[in-house]
């Protein structure tokens, strides 16, 4: 990206500013797989990828299916002697009971189940019409804005790492078995990372503008 000195009256639509440091640039879209990076703070400004839309749709669909399934199937099972107990993701969230803990239960359920699913659904709502060359869906701008606002609050992948820690903690207390949901969540971690690396926000906003 090359810094620019805008001439008064120049079309502002051709300019972009780095969201992190406010540096002004004349936007020139790089080739696929190349990235336009802010010259002073190195924030990635534009990073288009061929076929990213289709891949993002596939990933978002998978995330919805995985989270819903992983929520219902047992996650881990422990055994001590004859006694055993299985727990699903929803059980984990709802383990905080009574009074203020109830608020915490809701928050945990939101962070590991509802927000990741909601984000994936919003992404589908925004991307499907664009990728299939239809006019943007109604309220697509608000949907994409919401999806971006929710990004830091979607913590499914952090929960997956939390499982590994929990496993070690119970390991010397009891015998632990993985349920199908455990493997689903492991795949989810990878998908969430893929999802973020394929998304070029500039390209999405540009196509929503049309």
């Amino acid at each position: 990206m090359h810094p620019t000195t805008p001439i008064p009256g120049e079309d502002l639509a051709d300019l972009i500013a780095c969201p992190k440091c406010d540096a002004l640039y004349k936007a020139s879209e790089p080739a696929s797989m190349e990235r336009a990076v802010c010259a002073r703070c190195h924030t990635v400004l534009i990073a288009p990828r061929k076929g990213a839309g289709m891949r993002l749709i596939a990933v978002s669909l998978t995330v919805v299916i995985l989270v819903v399934a992983a929520t219902l199937f047992p996650f881990l099972t422990i055994r001590i002697g004859g006694a055993s107990h299985s727990s699903s993701v929803l059980d984990a969230a709802l383990s905080f009971q009574g009074g203020l803990f109830f608020a915490l239960a809701l928050a945990v359920a939101a962070l590991i189940v509802f927000i990741p699913v909601l984000r994936a659904l919003l992404m589908l709502y925004v991307l499907v019409p664009i990728v299939f060359d239809r006019p943007p869906a109604r309220g697509a701008k608000a949907a994409f804005r919401m999806s971006e606002d929710l990004r830091p609050w979607s913590m499914a992948e952090i929960f997956a790492i939390g499982c590994a820690v929990a496993l070690v903690k119970v390991a010397d207390l009891a015998q632990v078995e993985f349920g199908p949901a455990f493997y689903m969540f492991s795949v989810l971690v990878v998908l969430v990372i893929v999802q973020d690396s394929f998304l070029c926000r500039y390209s999405v906003w540009k196509s929503l503008e049309a």
């Binding site: 006694a83 059980d91 984990a92 945990v108 952090i158 820690v165 929990a166 903690k169």
Partner: peptide, 22 residues
């Protein structure tokens, strides 16, 4: 966001380790 990990561990442990008297 990664600091949340400890809360999730507590949630997991307390939902998993419910073995009555044991």
């Amino acid at each position: 966001r990664w600091s949340m990990i400890d809360v999730f561990v507590v949630a997991l442990l307390s939902s998993l380790v419910q073995l009555g008297a044991l």
